[in-house]
Structure formats: structure tokens, C-alpha cells
């Protein structure tokens, strides 16, 4: 069953003759339980595309359907409810509130929704255990490492059981060890918790953890490859070859 459906999505910036076509007619589907990466060089329109999908930005034209709901037609106020019920977010720079402990950050959306306190505690506890951050729950974001912060962000994204998790360069601010740990966590989220994840990245190592990779160039889909039965290493090499074709990223593993 498809969770996300994009039809001829366009997003233009600028006025008159000076128009930037950040997203220029993109269409694709993501099914439930898929883990998809969007790759491309800087300026290829990855983040803009993600922002449109995450309802942070408004597309110029085209349709976005999430879980059967056409989001381009939802009003501003209803969008807030929609995001709350359907979407989880992970950002490159974490976007945690440093005035709150890790625990409170994770629980924020539940607290805001005025859930029962016992239920909140239980949910936070279980998700923190799964992501391996249960011992830092009482700490503040500035007291923990980048990798831990990002896992906290994952927990926050997961806690509402959203239909889809949107991740924007989640490993961008992490070292290679933390990156690997985070990606493995996300893979587990995908496999065990059945979370549908759409990740934007320019790092082929990160992309090799996904099942499907979409390549963007100049606002259009350039190609799409699927992991299938390949090992992660083989898939990584395939991504690298594709990037060479696109003209970017050096080989590393």
C-alpha cells in the first residue's frame, strides 16, 4: 500500500526572468515499510523536495498525497494536526530544544497532545530502550554527544507512530562511528517497528542502508536503483557508480 505519492511536483523560486527550478516535475511513490533515500549533489533540490513533502514548504504546483490525504489542499491549521498524526522529523542539526531534557524532548509531542502521564512515561521508556538512550534521559541536549542527540531526535520522531519519518541529512553532523550506529538504528526502526522512512542525503554510505535510492539532478529524477538481494557493500558500490555517472562524491567505505 502506498504511503506517499508525488505527482508532477514543482517548486520554483525567484521572480520574472530569474527563476530557480528547485524541483521540476517529480513523480514517485513510496510504499508502507519502505526505507528510501534521495541523493543528489548540492543544489539538486533534495531538501526542497523534502520540505514540500513535510509540509514545511508549499509547492508551486503538483500533488502530494500522504496516507491517502492530499496535503496541498489542507489548510494551515489542519496541517498542524496532520503533521502531528502522520509525520516524524529528523534534522541534520537535531532541532532539539535545549531548555528541555532528552526525555522531555522525546515526549514533547505527547505532552502537547495532553496524553495521560503514565502512557507518556511508558512510551518514552520503551522507545528509549529500543534506541539505546535510556540512561541519558534525564540529561540536557548540551550534555550528550551528537550521536545521542540524533537518536533522541529519532525517538521523538517515532513516538507518535507516524505514517512516515522524514530525515534531512541525519548523519550530516555526526562522526563515522555515530553515523553507522544511527543508520543501524534507523534500519532497525524500519525493519522492527515497520516505520516508513524517507531520507535525504548526499552521503552514499548512508544511502546504502536503504532499500531504494532516488537520484536527483537539477530538480528532476535522474535514476532509481533498488537494493533487492544485494549485500550492503554491493549496493554501496552500485550507488557509487551511479554517482560517478552523475558526477559527484568520492569512493569511501
Amino acid at each position: 500500500m502506498e504511503v506517499l505519492k508525488l505527482q508532477n511536483l514543482k517548486k520554483y523560486y525567484g521572480i520574472n526572468t530569474n527563476i530557480t527550478k528547485a524541483v521540476d516535475g517529480i513523480s514517485f511513490n513510496i510504499d508502507e515499510g519502505e526505507f528510501v533515500a534521495i541523493m543528489g549533489a548540492s543544489g539538486s533540490g533534495k531538501t526542497t523536495l523534502l520540505n514540500c513533502i513535510s509540509t514545511i514548504d508549499v509547492p508551486t504546483s503538483g500533488f502530494i498525497t500522504i496516507g491517502g490525504i492530499e496535503i496541498t489542499k489542507i489548510k494551515e491549521d489542519e496541517l498542524a494536526d496532520f503533521r502531528k498524526d502522520n509525520l516524524g522529523f529528523i534534522f541534520q542539526d537535531f532541532n532539539l530544544l535545549d531548555t528541555m531534557t532528552i526525555e522531555e524532548n522525546i515526549a514533547l509531542s505527547l505532552i502537547v497532545n495532553k496524553e495521560n502521564i503514565n502512557i507518556i512515561d511508558k512510551k518514552v521508556e520503551s522507545i528509549a530502550t529500543k534506541l539505546g538512550i535510556s540512561d541519558i534521559l534525564k540529561k540536557f541536549p548540551y550534555e550528550v554527544s551528537g550521536g545521542q542527540k540524533q537518536r533522541c531526535a529519532c525517538a521523538r520522531a517515532l513516538i507518535n507512530n507516524p505514517k512516515m519519518i522524514l530525515a534531512d541529512e541525519p548523519t550530516g553532523a555526526l562522526d563515522s562511528k555515530s553515523s553507522r550506529m544511527l543508520l543501524e538504528t534507523m534500519k532497525e526502526m524500519n525493519e522492527e517497528l515497520k516505520a516508513t522512512i524517507l531520507m535525504v542525503t548526499h552521503d552514499s554510505f548512508s544511502a546504502s542502508f536503504c532499500e531504494k535510492v532516488l537520484f536527483l539532478k537539477d530538480g528532476k529524477i535522474f535514476n532509481e536503483i533498488v537494493k533487492g538481494e544485494k549485500t550492503r557493500k554491493e549496493f554501496f558500490n552500485e550507488i557509487m557508480d551511479m554517482l560517478t555517472l552523475l558526477g559527484g562524491d568520492e569512493r569511501q567505505c
Binding site: S54, I56, E76, D77, A80, D81, F82, R83, K84, D85, F89, N95, L97, T99, L108, S109, V112, N113, R156
Partner: peptide, 15 residues
């Protein structure tokens, strides 16, 4: 503003 942005992301109405 960032704090407000996160609130909005988490589904709190802008109003």
C-alpha cells in the same frame, strides 16, 4: 523562532 518552528513541526497549531 526556532523553538516556535519545532512546536509547529510537532503539530501545534500556529494560532
Amino acid at each position: 523562532s526556532k523553538e516556535f518552528g519545532i512546536y509547529a513541526l510537532l503539530g501545534i497549531k500556529k494560532r
